[in-house]
Design a binder for these strands. Structure first.
Length: 584
RNA sequence: GCGCCCGUAGCUCAGCUGGAUAGAGCAACUGACUUCUAAUCAGUAGGUCACAGGUUCGAAUCCUGUCGGGCGUGCCA
């Protein structure tokens, strides 16, 4: 049940009646007509822009059109009052009874309140993390992981059929570097002194375990052999080990993928050849020489003919190589095959969550998707900007060369996965984000995780206390749904109810925009309303949630508190966060 | 050079896809607080939405240009 969607259809119905009655022309386009909560709540519960949007095509002054429509709306029974304001807004005030009924609706729906069928079961593929299997996950990876995960959950909540996917880059050069690094550690595990890790190898300590595991499995079987003999086996072994490591890191963050897709498997199955065939058949490739890059010193640049994809035909800036000058495939070629594969698996809508350093790659990938799906597929790329890890206001510097980077795991161990998840969602993806290890565990309004969790914990606490105060009060959902809420008519209470009713609408707009961070801001505001109400009880005992001499009033308040905690829990659920029952 | 992102209160950021008098938190100032769990709440102050044009009933939001910051810019993945 979405209050505003419902109102909008009531408005449109009236407009259709007006057209039928000859008051306005027939056949008008109502798609821009909206019914939304006004920014300033003093304007009422909802406002429609119908008169302003339609005045021109209807050939009427906005105010005249508004007054015709207003008269009709006034006669609807849920509407308490109607007023025309400003340039032609129609402000609607709804009957309080209507709002009270919504609390019952929320209680009945529970955490499924806000679920929507907007997506119509459409298949959507969300690809995220996709970190190279060459090391443990870092804080940087965590942002993409959380944003992708929450976006997937959000889309599922509003009615899409979502597949969460991880693309394993196991075909490029870096997995050979990995294999060589692992081989070195393998020799070390078998007693050899390997000294300093040379340039061009991954130095990380985690590879010791990989080398040891390989030695345990295969003994000295690869020792003293040519690289060509062991590379393929060792590479596969190392990749599997690293993927297990990454999977564990993701699990510690609460992320579970539906599908892991291997680049190597795709290439070996002929995916790239198929892409080439398609491109050739459609005259989308040619052999050419690219201009030298500008703005960068073309030190060792020399002109070389390559196989190029005509991505400029689809909005890219230059055509992109799919074959290197030595004849091997570029990363892009494999990625094209991968996206074609996704499309073939039934995903017309694809969303990729990428790190900031991949910004320059978006256009060519979108061009590729457009070309390969003959415009039937779409690709949205969410680029996550950098996370600045801080401690007490100071930047935590990481040096990659020494292999001394901050792992995701160590951060989770320090502050907990729920904190990491929430903080990663407190900024829109394309803005950079400060993550202060001290601030995020502070107990203050400045720390949104705490503030929201505290609101939930406070609800739980209040419910528990009310039960102590009135042992025979029925707090079951069934009972609370039936409670008469007409006493909850203070401004704070009605404002909280209205806020709760915005939840379904917020979910849909956040889902449509692919912006899960909006939920974080909503929850923060919602928590603020609850804390505000709570403190009113200090001035006036009658306004406390628990009124010791009035069980009926208390029970009504409990219905509202319960509904609030359900919406908070449901928001946190989209974020994959466990709501706190108490603060310690 | 070109492309993408960003520019909103002293600071950190929202702004619901074009709505009414642009909102929060922090910091500052004033007040409430023997509690249903203390870590909160109420209020004051703070703005040329970088700048200049344009589109229209209406622009922080869309378009063009300028300035400033970040990222990316052949055969890495």
């Amino acid at each position: 049940m979405n209050v505003f969607k419902d109102l909008r259809s009531k408005v449109v119905a009236q407009l259709e009646d007006m057209a039928a009655a000859g008051e306005i022309p027939t056949g008008l386009d109502f798609s821009r007509v909206a019914a939304e909560p006004p920014r300033d709540s003093s304007h009422g519960d909802a406002a429609t822009n119908a008169a302003m949007v339609l005045s021109k095509v209807a050939g009427m002054k906005p105010r005249d059109l508004a007054s015709l429509l207003a008269t009709r709306l006034e006669n609807l029974d849920v509407i308490k009052s109607v007023e025309i304001a400003g340039p032609g807004f129609i402000n609607l005030r709804l009957d309080e009874k209507f709002w009270f009924e919504q609390v019952g609706t929320i209680l009945k729906a529970g955490t499924s309140y806000g679920d929507s069928d907007m997506g119509q079961g459409e298949k959507v593929n969300v690809e995220y993390v996709s970190a190279n299997p060459t090391g443990p996950l870092t804080v940087g990876h965590a942002r993409g992981a959380v944003v992708g995960d929450a976006l997937a959950a959000l889309l599922a909540k509003v009615g899409y059929d979502v597949c969460k996917e991880y693309y394993i880059n196991d075909a490029g050069n870096q997995v050979n570097v990995l294999a060589n690094s692992a081989y070195l550690r393998y020799r070390e595990a078998l007693g050899e002194d390997i000294g300093e890790i040379p340039e061009g190898f991954y130095p990380g300590e985690y590879l010791k375990d990989v080398g040891k595991a390989l030695a345990d499995r295969d003994g000295d079987k690869w020792l003293g052999k040519e690289e060509a003999d062991w590379i393929s086996d060792v590479r596969k072994f190392a990749i599997d080990q690293l993927l297990n490591l990454i999977r564990d890191d993701l699990a510690a963050l609460g992320v579970v993928m539906d599908v892991y897709s291997s680049e190597r498997a795709l290439v070996e199955a002929g995916g790239v050849d198929e892409v080439m065939k398609f491109l050739e058949a459609n005259d989308l490739v040619y052999t050419g020489v690219l201009e030298p890059p500008k703005g960068k010193k073309p030190d060792d640049w020399e002109a070389r003919p390559q196989t190029l994809f005509k991505s400029t035909d689809f909005g890219d800036d230059v055509d992109r190589p799919i074959k290197k000058s030595d004849g091997s495939w570029t990363y892009f070629a494999g990625d094209m095959a991968y996206h074609l594969d996704k499309y073939r698996r039934g995903f017309n809508t694809m969303i990729n969550v990428w790190g900031a350093d991949h910004g320059g790659y978006i256009k060519r990938m979108q061009a590729a998707v457009t070309a390969m799906t003959e415009k039937k597929g779409s690709l949205d790329v969410k680029v996550c900007q950098l996370v600045n890890l801080m401690r007490g206001g100071e930047m935590v510097r990481m040096s990659k060369r020494s292999g001394n980077f901050i792992t995701l795991r160590s951060v989770i161990d320090e502050v907990g996965k729920d904190v990491v998840r929430f903080i990663m969602l407190t900024r829109k993806n394309d803005a950079s984000l400060d993550f202060d290890l001290e601030k995020v565990v502070e107990q203050s309004r400045d720390n949104p995780v705490f503030y929201v969790q505290y609101a939930h914990a406070r609800s739980c606490s209040v419910l528990k206390h009310s039960k102590n105060e009135f042992p025979d009060m029925d707090l079951s959902i069934e009972a609370l749904e039936q409670v008469d809420l007409s006493q909850l008519n203070s401004e704070g209470e009605l404002s909280l109810i209205r806020r709760l009713c915005e939840w379904p609408r917020l979910l849909e707009s956040a889902g449509e925009a692919h912006e899960p961070h909006r939920i974080a801001f909503y929850l923060y505001d919602l928590a603020g309303e609850l804390h505000g109400l709570w403190t009113k009880g200090k001035d006036n005992a009658r306004l406390r949630f628990i009124v010791t001499d009035d069980q009926d009033l208390t029970q009504a308040r409990m219905a509202l508190v319960k509904a609030t905690s359900l919406v908070i829990a449901s928001g946190l659920d989209v974020f994959g966060i466990e709501p706190a029952k108490e603060m310690r």
